[in-house]
């Protein structure tokens, strides 16, 4: 009964506002990897884990008036901002979701840049590889992002903190 929609709405009721589709994609993926039961299917897509299902679900929630999407024009692309609406809050009240409390994780993720979350999400995507293999993989797949050793270490520490939170 639209439980997956409700789970995303619950996330927005915690996050209040999310700036950037990329940031949103990575936040949900990272939370999923921290065992928050979002069911959107992710694959690797050029810039890291990406879910087409999530994109479409967000579009649905906007069309239903549950989320407010604002589009901001940047030099060569658009950036999108998302916020829950009163209708969305009302929709959410009809569900009793069995979800863990992950508000502290959302708060931590909100503080980080989308560039950093891209790195964190990619590290999590390759967590079956050894630490050296993952670092090599990231250098090979994301040469333009030019992540430094320090950033990677910071991302590893962040994952540890998040999973322990």
């Amino acid at each position: 009964m639209l439980d997956n929609h409700a789970r995303i709405m619950q996330f927005f009721s915690m996050a209040k506002e999310v700036t950037g589709r990329k940031k949103l994609q990575k936040m949900i993926y990272i939370l999923q990897q921290c065992h928050v039961p979002f069911e959107e299917k992710y694959n690797y897509h050029f810039y890291g884990p990406y879910s087409e299902e999530l994109t479409l679900r967000i579009e649905e929630l906007c069309n239903l008036g549950f989320l407010q999407e604002n589009k901001e024009e940047k030099s060569s692309y658009y950036q999108y901002h998302y916020q829950i609406t009163p209708e969305g809050e009302q929709f959410l009240r009809q569900f009793s979701l069995n979800m863990p409390d992950y508000s502290d994780k959302v708060e931590k993720l909100q503080e980080k840049s989308s560039r950093f979350l891209e790195l964190v999400a990619t590290l999590l995507y390759f967590d079956h590889l050894s630490r050296d293999e993952v670092f090599q993989k990231i250098q090979a797949l994301k040469p333009s992002q030019n992540y430094s050793e320090e950033e990677m270490e910071e991302a590893v520490a962040f994952i540890r903190e998040l999973k322990g939170a």
């Binding site: 589709r21 990329k22 897509h45 050029f46 994109t55 479409l56 950036q79 989308s114 891209e118």
Partner: peptide, 22 residues
Amino acid sequence: VIDSSSDLPYDFYRPGEERERL
């Protein structure tokens, strides 16, 4: 049963955001 289009495995063309998808 409520069935939503997001339950289906197909995608439209979306230009998207920078570094969201190609």
